[in-house]
Design a protein around this nucleic acid. Sequence first.
DNA 1: GACCTGCTGCGGCGTG
Length: 728
Amino acid sequence: MTTAFDKLARPIQRWIRSQGWRDLRDIQVRSITAISDGTSDVIIAASTAGGKTEAAFLPLISQVIADEEAVGGFDLLYVAPLKALITDQANRLEAMCQEAELPVVPWHGDVSASIKARAVKRPRGVLLITPESLEALFMRRGLEIPRLFRSLRAVILDEVHTMLDSERGVQLRSQLTRLELAIGRPIRRIGLSATLGDMDQARIYLRPDNAASVQVIEAQGGEAELRLQLRGYIAGGDDKSLPPPTDLIAKHLFDHLRGTDNLAFAGSRQSVEIYADRLRALCEDARLPQEFYPHHASLSREHREAVERRLKDGKLPTTAICTSTLELGIDIGDVSCVAQIGAPFSVASLRQRLGRSGRRAGKPAILRQYAIEAKINAKSSFADRLRLGLLRSIAMIDLLLEGWCEPARTGALHLSTLVHQILSIITERGGANAPRLYRMLCQDGPFRQVSPAIFADVLRAMGQCDPALIEQASDGLLLLGPMGESLTSHYSFYAVFQTPEEYRLIAEGRELGTLPIDNMVAPGMMIIFSGRRWLVQEVDDQGKVIIVTHAKAGAPPIFGGDAGMIHDVVIERMFDLLNRDDVPSYLDPTARELLAEARSDFSRMQFPSSRIAEIGEGAWIVATHCGTVKTTTLAFALRSRGFTVQTFDGFLEVMTGRSSCDLVAALGSIAEGAECHLFAADANLTTEKFHPYLTQSLLEMDALSFRLDQLSLPSLARSVLGLPSEYI
DNA sequence: GACCTGCTGCGGCGTG
């Protein structure tokens, strides 16, 4: 029998020996066999630093080397969501490809135009690119695409879980279809990930027309031991002499993380600033060198890279207080512990974060979860009483331990991204006809939920906005309109996602980072930024610049953001926790106390037997037992009937408002399937980049396909009312 | 009720 090693080309075998590897990892052996012996698409699922990149590239590069009939063109295409990942992988592949004299070409916004020009002139080897740069290639060099990619053997999609049903994911899938159509044959797809919730779904994503043929190679076990603790804190107590929870948590982090490398996820940029400020002060008070640094997307690249370098080289102990900026990305080495302040928004991201800890053999992964809950008094809201943040933290940790994580949400129309792709294809080809666009994007491509009628409406909307995005020539060919010309000719077009306008923050001539433009900032104000305190000297509205100097006090700015989407399974688990009486072993005494209080308040509100509790004249709490999408849909339906509604995790707070109607009667009519218009006249539905060019009815359709779930309404109302679920 | 990601072509100037 031939071993996996024997299947590899000589130069690759030499490279492996030069690395001093004693043997190949199991995932690599299985991947080499699958990729060398077969032709099917492959998903390689293994934890961070599990050797996935080599598992894919060792056999693929071997095949390229063995092929002696090269006619020119790139041999392999690697697509990743981050520039830093591309730079990192290019360096790793460089050595592997050197012996075989195969070029490795990193291609993103920071790569010089001369390197790109050379690669286009003589395309060979491995091209590593972002979806945005690939979009630019299609639009600026559309005619050259067949020549550049005619010999392509495979496309490797890194961190494929971040690309499943996101705007960028749909863009990438569309690009893959366009690539296959351009060269006239299918291209093998290899997906890499550490965090896939549902393998069958990932198969469908990777090859929608033949999902069954996709081979999945999953790393076996090998999960490090997990040590975890959840600490509870109470905010707003009567005793003003007690320090607030932020100070207590900062002190706890200071005492337990000092001297080692750690990641502390604080949940928002504002919290990152608060904790970084407290921890810096604690180091100064103790006359110790700084080792706690803030890290989030508004900080300057210079500052962020310095923190990453400190973590990676491992010489000085470093803790990054961070947002999801450090969840994904380049290898920053092993960290001792991952701290999570406040409930995370998804189990998938918690899993990804924990993947950064305990990777060295024999060392446990450590998760420190901190939960802050309000002190209860007579005026406390039900949401405070039920400790929803603590419950969500416990629910997510339990689901993590069970190996579950959120699958992608399917079924979305993605109309904003569809507009983007229509404009891109028209630019690429200098024009396109509607039936062909429909075939490329909706039949062969990823927009399969879009019917011919909806597609026609989208084209009409693009033609009717003023100035028009597209126009039609007398022979029916679709061309760019004035607005289409203007959008596609600017480099900001390539990304499908929206980005807000920002101010640049400057101190002593150096850029600290950026602030969202909707922040109220005026000279004389004190702010906390980059873990330090500043006095605003000057605000230049034209140049979008804020000049600051050092200050003694300050408050952190507000960075804004959108609502999270909590999955149904997480909310169900939260209710399950309220109805049980066992206590997870990883809770500290305060957290145990908080959980016990939540449970007793829950039963006092008569919830275990009923789903509606009347809390006053014309005021109710409704337990939906559902995640954000369904709960929000019911809130929209009740609002459209005149109620005032606030949403919480798995609950609604409903008030009569201008409705004279009884809540039970309203739910009854929803349960019977009565028609209801969900959108108030002022509902803001333009959430994505190309939404401003669509009509109200298309925007409503887009929202209903993704952020709302109208079909679930009758059965949700029935279960809230305690009626048997409908027989279908 | 939050976070993250990305970007071309070309003119102008200096240097060898």
